[in-house]
């Protein structure tokens, strides 16, 4: 099934809407068939939210409800985060709707043994950007076509190459001095209330018992004071090094508006420049932070 594409070459496309009417109906009928035939127990996708400006996640088990699936610029959520929940984990085989950026999370989860490929039907959507105005991550997107899917909806767009220039947003930070950086982050992290929304929404924060919840010993202070906030946010960043796929969901869900994606993208950039590695591009790539390759630079050993 892998690599089968739906021919939509003659379908009308506009620059604002992602899926045309025809692609959407293909997705809906495909989802319906999956449920009807019993191939999957559930389809995770997007549906109309409670207000007209919002989309919301849909967990569809009834084939008749497959027609409620939507896809447009309101569908910025990364649905792969639901795969780490206990309910979905024991749901058996499911289908999931993913954009290019979301699909990268699937590759990381596969690489880290968190999901089973045979328990998953990946419904890939060609996405040219979501959000109004278009999200920052979409402006620099190099994965309009998902790097992994079983069924692709939409006309594939050739993905751009990754270069150092891709990481535009990090540039504003790189111009700062060490002191300015320190002040900037003290100021930003000071607002953290330790609600851990960033952790909960992250598709690859897969630990069932987070290190912050460990209290024997208590490595990460629980209180939202400066030190505790730095502890948490830096630990989170380090645990994502070489793993973060840059979906920016942490930043979107942060109630204190901390620019968390700046931390993430800085790390993505560093890992890319050091190892030429972008997390989530393939389920077989060796993760650089836990792999040693002979001949690798070791300039940190003095």
């Amino acid at each position: 099934m892998l690599g089968v594409m739906v021919d939509v070459s003659d379908a009308e496309t506009t620059s604002t809407a992602n899926a045309t009417f025809r692609e959407l109906s293909t997705l809906q009928s495909f989802a319906k068939k999956l449920l009807e035939s019993g191939t999957v127990k559930m389809v995770i996708g997007y549906s109309q939210g409670y207000t007209s400006d919002r989309a919301m996640p849909a967990f569809i088990t009834d084939p008749e409800k497959a027609s409620s699936l939507i896809f447009d610029k309101r569908c910025f959520h990364n649905l792969t985060m639901y795969l780490k929940t206990a309910e979905i984990k024991c749901a058996g085989k499911i289908a999931i709707v993913v954009k290019g950026c979301d699909a990268k999370a699937l590759n990381v989860l596969l690489l880290e043994n968190q999901i089973k490929r045979e328990n998953l039907v990946i419904l890939g959507l060609v996405c040219i950007g979501v959000g109004d105005p278009t999200l920052e991550k979409c402006r620099i997107c190099n994965v309009n076509t998902p790097p992994i899917y079983d069924e692709l909806f939409g006309k594939p767009v050739p993905n751009k190459e990754w270069t150092s220039a891709t990481f535009t947003r990090v540039k504003e930070l790189e111009g700062k001095s060490q002191k300015e950086l320190w002040e900037f982050w003290v100021n930003e992290f000071n607002r953290c209330i330790k609600c851990y929304a960033c952790r909960e929404v992250c598709p690859i924060c897969t630990c069932t018992r987070c290190i912050t919840d460990k209290n024997q010993p208590q490595w990460v202070p629980t209180s939202p004071h400066s030190m505790g906030n730095f502890h948490w946010n830096l630990t989170r960043a380090f645990h994502l090094a070489g793993r973060c796929i840059g979906c920016d969901e942490c930043e979107r869900s942060c109630p204190a508006d901390i620019p968390l994606s700046l931390v993430n993208w800085k790390l993505i950039k560093q890992v890319f420049e050091k190892y030429g590695f972008i997390a989530g591009m393939s389920p077989d790539d060796l993760p650089p932070m836990s792999t040693y390759v002979e001949g690798e630079e070791e300039e940190f050993i003095k």
Partner: peptide, 13 residues
């Protein structure tokens, strides 16, 4: 075993 999520990064290192 209770808390291990089986990511097997330990196996790699």
């Amino acid at each position: 075993e209770l808390n291990c999520i089986g990511c097997f990064q330990c196996e790699k290192v």
